[in-house]
């Protein structure tokens, strides 16, 4: 963990801070000069104060864990199903012919359009939210896995035939490692989509429960814009952290590709 922080610090380019800092400066000046209505746009220092209070609130961390739990549970389910269907459709022309057109057509429907059906059938609780998150993670994983399996070079397949690979060797010695670069791209995208869907589900399947989405909803209800902004910051930070971890895992797993 310390090594991870150190390597991140070494790679950090201070120029990345220029835009956020400039924005904060303009924001603070606008507030001090009273160019904006302070009820609609509080000061940055005011947001920091709100953040501090929010962190001290006993509901904050349970909310964060609740969101993360939904996110990871949905991602795990959608990711596993995505890899499995991508492999199945990638290997079998027959399954591909039978399922791909339908899956493609379903993909054209915005996932948010399913929410009324999901809430009608499954309500507003964690089950419904995780289902929605899983569906969001599923597609990028399935599509990329499919492409990874189809893209296995013919020579590698011939090697497997020459060496008389067993079924298990086919899957674990050829298919999964050969398709790994694409599968990992899919999983990384799936993780991003799952996090977007997590917050989306907390807004659109809101049930006054626990979660980062609820934090933001509370802010809006109380006309506490500072709290809304703080919620957005947390959502963004958690998303970046997840993406960073996924990237590190990918780099580690694909070290054999070289620089």
């Amino acid at each position: 963990m310390i090594a991870a922080v150190k390597s991140a610090a070494r790679r950090f380019d201070p120029r990345a801070l220029a835009l956020p800092l400039a924005f904060l400066a303009v924001w603070e000046i606008a507030y001090l000069r009273a160019w904006v209505d302070p009820r609609l746009i509080p000061s940055p220092s005011g947001v920091v104060q709100t953040a501090w209070n929010s962190l001290a609130d006993e509901a904050f961390f349970p909310g964060l864990w609740a969101s993360l739990y939904r996110d990871l549970a949905g991602f795990a389910i959608g990711g596993l199903l995505g890899v499995a269907s991508g492999v199945a459709l990638g290997l079998s022309r027959r399954l591909d012919a039978a399922f791909n057109p339908t899956l493609n057509a379903l993909k054209q429907i915005s996932l948010f359009a399913w929410l009324p059906l999901i809430s009608t059938w499954f309500g507003y609780d964690d089950g419904a939210k995780i289902l929605f998150i899983a569906a969001s993670a599923f597609y990028p994983v399935a599509v990329n896995t499919f492409e990874g399996v189809r893209g296995i070079p013919k020579t590698h397949i011939e090697v497997a035939r020459v060496f008389r690979f067993s079924k298990a060797q086919w899957v674990f010695r050829l298919l999964l490692p050969a398709a790994a670069p694409k599968i990992l791209v899919g999983l990384q995208l799936g993780l991003v989509f799952a996090w977007l869907a997590t917050i989306g589900s907390e807004f659109l399947l809101a049930n006054w429960g626990s979660g980062l989405g609820n934090l933001i909803i509370h802010g809006r209800e109380a006309l506490d814009v500072g709290l809304v902004i703080w919620g957005l910051v947390v959502v963004g930070l958690v998303g970046s952290l997840l993406d960073h971890l996924a990237q590190r895992a990918e780099n580690r797993l694909l070290r054999w590709r070289g620089a």
């Binding site: 590698h156 490692p177 050969a178 590709r257």
Partner: peptide, 8 residues
């Protein structure tokens, strides 16, 4: 084309 497995 050698056909080595690059991950091994």
């Amino acid at each position: 084309q050698y056909a080595l497995f690059p991950w091994l």
